[in-house]
Simulated assay, not measured.
Amino acid sequence: MLADTPEPPYYAVIFTSLMRDDSAGYAAMADKMLTLAQDQPGFLGVESAREEIGITVSYWADLEAIRAWKRDIDHREAQRLGRERWYAAYRTRIARVERDYGFDH
C-alpha cells in the first residue's frame, strides 16, 4: 500500500539495508517499530520492500519529528540490535520532499 502523504513539503527517511544470514526476531521487531512509529507525532506514513536489499521509506512532517523518533528508547534498542544482529550494512538518508505526484486506480 502506498503512504497517504499530505501536500509537500514534508520529509522522507530512506533506510536501505543488507541483511545477515540470521534474521531471527527481525520481523517481529520491524512490526513493533512500525506500530510505535505510527504513534509518533509527525509520522505521516511508510512504504517498504524487502528482496535482495531492504528499502523502507518513512514520511515525517518535519525534522524535529524525525529527531524525536531517532531518540525513542525502543527505536534505539532496535537500532542497536540491527547493528549487532541483523544488518550486514545499512544506510539512512533524509530528504525534503518538494514535489509529490502519481496515479491511483
Rank of each mutant, 00 (worst) to 15 (best):
A37R: 02
S23T: 11
M19G: 05
A24E: 15
G82E: 11
Y10Q: 12
W69S: 02
S23Q: 06
D104P: 07
Q79W: 06
D62S: 03
I14N: 14
A78Y: 02
T5L: 13
D39K: 04
R96V: 12
G102Q: 10
T92K: 05
R76G: 11
R20L: 04
E77M: 10
A27W: 03
D104F: 12
L34C: 08
Y26S: 01
R50G: 03
E52I: 04
Y26D: 02
A12F: 01
T56D: 06
H75C: 02
Y87I: 11
Y101K: 09
G45N: 04
E47W: 00
G82M: 10
S23W: 08
S58A: 09
F103E: 07
A30F: 07
K32S: 09
R80H: 07
A68P: 03
A28K: 12
A89R: 02
P8H: 11
P9Y: 08
R67D: 02
A37C: 05
V13P: 03
E7M: 07
R50I: 12
A65T: 06
Y90V: 05
Y59G: 00
R50F: 12
P8K: 14
E98C: 13
M1V: 11
I66T: 06
A49C: 13
E84K: 13
A30E: 10
D21N: 14
L44M: 07
G102M: 07
I94W: 08
V13G: 02
E77C: 09
L2Q: 05
D72G: 15
Y11M: 13
G42M: 05
I55G: 03
E84I: 14
V13W: 01
E64F: 05
S17P: 04
G25T: 08
D72R: 05
K32E: 10
A24L: 15
L18M: 04
L2C: 09
V57W: 01
D31A: 15
M29C: 09
R96M: 12
R85E: 05
F43G: 02
P6M: 13
A3R: 00
T16L: 03
I73T: 13
F43P: 01
P41A: 13
A49S: 07
L34I: 11
K32C: 10
I55V: 14
R71A: 13
G45S: 08
A65C: 09
T56Q: 03
Y11D: 05
P8M: 15
H75S: 05
L44W: 00
A30K: 05
I53G: 10
P6Y: 08
E84M: 15
S58I: 03
